[in-house]
Design a protein around this nucleic acid. Structure first.
Lengths: 216, 216
DNA sequence: ACAACCCAGAGATCGCCGCTCTCGATTGTT
DNA sequence: AACAATCGAGAGCGGCGATCTCTGGGTTGT
């Protein structure tokens, strides 16, 4: 009934998004493809932004699922392997779903404020990476490095993540570095510089593992 | 005459862009503000995309100017200082011009392929950073680290930049890391994690300087 | 000095878009 | 059987990018 049609609309919208990008996503086009009046769609999504929000949450979850699944397939004691698996899965998902990735990590759509519901799913990959590092800390394989960058973070963040001072900021930086590497590739900034993007990414991820102090 | 009006249109458009973002930039609104018919604007910019392209080139140049000016004010032998100055200037420009930064480094506007004219100005900051590292190499203060990531790059890129193998890939990664840090802040990904963004950025930049091997 | 020409701007028009409102029709409940 | 609630359709609003045609004023060439 209602839930069914809601899902159907979201599916068509996701397909349009995947092929043409967020800016080209039109409620009217979705309605046309479903053979219904454009005004009828508003019974299910009060605005285009709400439809977009639903797609964002789905995309965050798809990315989070992919990364978590990949990471969980690696033996727990292979910290660097887990790190690599999560990063590689994230990149591969991004390459396979460029428009959705752009929607998540590209410029925020102007006038569009990320609603509450997108915050939690949006942190899944970051939290996953932090968990790997925290495991390393608990196993005594990652040792804190003297660093006062933690003082720039929200108080209590390290405790919340199970990360000691000197590591939290580095972990956050590593996450942003991974994001930067993926975005540079996807958004074409390295078009004339990098030839084998996957291999280059692997190297970058490895150096970021060094940054957070994962053992070799 | 013609050049004057062209500049005037671009100025108004830039103001609209700065206040409302790229997606909200409308040829008609610009024309309205200038008191002319929307169709008249097409005499000066054949399409909205062309207007956007002009703004992109201007923005790249403004960012490049800012970074280069800041870097050139630091003594030549203070490599890390030059690195920091360039990065800090880039971030401050981005914070002051978020919509323009988003236009440069955010998701590429769907269906909009970056024209040739934007490529050269788009690499200025990256080249500036590479120049700092190359200076360090020439002074013997930066030593190549064994690393096979260079093999993933476009052949000859290292020679072109004056960087030895083992450093080129790291420099590129550092650039993408800086971009990632700025974007994370600007696009709100670190809203609930980082408190003092400027200080956090400084720390990240310092660790990226370590990555490329700049002396302390 | 006059005529030919050119071109910037105006206005109308087209087909999109997001969004709103109203009006029937169907459905399910009292 | 009557009622309320929901749902879809259709018309319509204002705004958008883009195109086309027309007009008036300045420039050029004779």
């Amino acid at each position: 009934m209602r839930a069914e049609l809601t899902r159907e609309i979201a599916d068509v919208a996701r397909r349009h998004l995947a092929t043409s990008g967020a800016a080209a996503l039109s409620l009217r086009a979705v309605a046309r493809e479903l053979g219904m009046a454009s005004s009828a769609v508003y019974r299910y999504f009060p605005s285009r932004d709400d439809l977009l929000t639903a797609l964002i949450v789905d995309a965050y979850d798809a990315l989070g699922d992919t990364a978590e699944r990949a990471e969980s397939a690696v033996p727990r004691d292979d910290l660097r392997g887990r790190w690599h698996a999560a990063c590689r899965a994230a990149r591969e998902w991004a390459v396979a779903h460029p428009h959705e990735y752009a929607l998540l990590y590209g410029s925020p759509v102007p006038g569009y404020a990320a609603p509450e519901t997108t915050i939690a799913p949006g942190t899944r990959v970051g939290l996953l990476l932090c968990r790997v590092v925290a495991d390393g800390v608990n196993r005594g394989e990652v040792t804190a490095i003297a660093d006062d960058s933690d003082a720039t973070l929200v108080p209590g963040l390290g405790d919340q993540l199970g990360l000691p001072p000197g590591v939290t900021a580095r972990a956050l930086q590593a996450w942003s570095g991974i994001y930067g590497a993926i975005s540079f590739e996807l958004f074409g900034q390295t078009n004339n510089a990098v030839l084998e993007h996957a291999a280059f990414f692997e190297g970058a991820v490895d150096r970021l593992a060094d940054l957070v102090g994962l053992p070799a």
